[in-house]
């Protein structure tokens, strides 16, 4: 797998929401759902090649505060991400793991020279967002992009079940 164990410090410097530049900006909407029993979804965000080969994890939102790492029990329900990357990792992964997000739109922003992106060879890629909810369903959205960023690229898709609008904005 393509997960590169980069030092925690490097990753932390580029962790979500506290970056100086945001040439690579992902927006993920967690929709409000009318269900009897609601739990915030687990979400994995990663980059794969246009052939589906996993390249780099960008974010993982799950119940990381639970005692005895119990929240990791359901990481395998992020089925694609688990198979492509998750099962090779040890949790929590510094700089990748974050708490589950409430209903609303959440951003993951990276500078083009962030360690997650810097080593990406030029080519066609897809951003993948996978969400799965306890006693709920699962949904996966892919947005294509070209790397490196030479022109403004904007992609978006509307989820139907577990995800709302997912958008990717690349700015040179």
């Amino acid at each position: 797998m393509q997960w590169k164990p980069i030092t925690a410090a490097l990753l932390l410097s580029a962790s979500t929401g506290q970056v100086v530049a945001d040439e690579f900006r992902v927006q993920v909407e967690i929709p409000a759902l009318q269900v009897a029993e609601y739990h915030r979804p687990y979400v994995a965000i990663w980059i794969e090649t246009d052939k589906g080969r996993h390249q780099q994890d960008l974010a993982l939102w799950y119940d990381l505060e639970l005692a005895d790492n119990e929240g990791t029990k359901w990481l395998k329900d992020l089925r694609q991400w688990w198979r492509r990357s998750g099962r090779q990792l040890e949790f929590p992964v510094d700089g990748l793991s974050g708490a589950t997000r409430p209903v609303g739109t959440h951003a993951v922003s990276l500078a083009a020279d962030a360690p997650q992106l810097a080593q990406l060879p030029a080519g066609q890629y897809r951003l993948v967002v996978e969400a799965v909810r306890e006693v709920g369903g699962r949904e996966l959205i892919r947005l294509p992009f070209q790397w490196p960023i030479t022109t403004v690229q904007q992609q978006q898709a509307q989820g139907k079940h577990e995800l709302g609008r997912v958008a990717l904005a690349l700015t040179p």
Binding site: H39, R40, P41, Y42, Y62, D63, L66, A67, E70, G71, K73, W74, D77, T100, V132, R133, E134
Partner: peptide, 8 residues
């Protein structure tokens, strides 16, 4: 995902 510790 979110185990209910109390009910558990």
């Amino acid at each position: 995902m979110n185990i209910k510790r109390l009910s558990a």
